[in-house]
């Protein structure tokens, strides 16, 4: 159990979805819930489900919080549990990445205070999507088909390594879409505080190693790009 670096608290529908994706990517994870009746369901899906009392700090510590757990998801259907768990985990470990889901608007702020690294709001996401479908159905179809979907167009992040040819270049000089069938969406400059800068903001960055590019394109094209620039 100790070597598992990803913990999913709350065996909800979201947990099943996330679990399925992680499974597909070959990542090991552990689900945790207090309801033993969920065991057969987890077994059927091939998930590892631990039945334990997560409200106890000792239990959390024994699960590896503060040691080797890097990612924690709080996915309960009840906001009260999510907020409490986020707070307990944050108190034990200030570095762990906590991803929380929420079900009410008020809880977003509470989760932020409690120390969640990022908050997924299914209702906001769903609402936004319906809104997009009505106002700009074409765009949503395209996004659905490409980024979320069936077509082989993915979004990927590429970290610039020290020995890459890109290291030290200006962004304008390496605009990769001209030779590769992919789009550079933006980048994360580790010297800047802001997490993500869209390419359309027009800043001409100098790329350093450790900077991260986010691209969209066919996986094969992205692979080719990576190979060419020894990333």
């Amino acid at each position: 159990m100790r070597e598992s670096k990803i913990l999913l608290f709350g065996f909800s529908r979201s947990a099943i979805e996330i679990g399925a994706r992680l499974q597909a990517q070959g990542l090991a994870f552990t689900c945790i819930d207090s309801d033993a009746s969920l065991l057969p369901k987890a077994k059927k899906l091939g998930f590892e489900l631990l039945i334990t009392d997560y409200s106890d700090d000792d239990t959390l510590l024994s699960l590896g919080i503060g040691e080797d757990v890097r990612f924690v998801f709080t996915l309960f259907d009840e906001d009260v549990q999510n907020v409490f768990l986020t707070l307990s985990i944050r108190a034990l470990d200030s570095k762990v990445q906590i991803v929380s889901t929420t079900h009410t608007k008020d809880a977003i702020h509470k989760l932020e205070i409690a120390g969640a690294s990022t908050i997924l709001d299914p209702y906001q996401i769903c609402g936004k999507r319906i809104y997009k479908l009505i106002t700009q159905p074409e765009i949503m179809q395209v996004i659905d088909a490409t980024i979320f979907g069936e077509e082989d167009i993915n979004m990927e992040q590429i970290t610039i390594t020290a020995h890459s040819a890109l290291n030290g270049l200006l962004l304008n000089e390496c605009y990769p879409t001209e030779k590769y069938n992919m789009l550079l969406i933006g980048l994360h400059d580790k010297e800047l505080k802001k997490e993500f800068i869209f390419i359309t903001e027009g800043h001409n960055h100098k790329l350093d190693h450790g900077d991260i590019l986010v691209v969209i394109g066919k996986s094969a094209e992205i692979e080719r790009f990576k190979m060419d620039f020894s990333l």
């Binding site: 529908r13 099943i16 399925a20 997924l120």
Partner: peptide, 8 residues
């Protein structure tokens, strides 16, 4: 949930 799964 599907979107959450993907994003998570």
């Amino acid at each position: 949930d599907e979107t959450i799964g993907l994003m998570g």
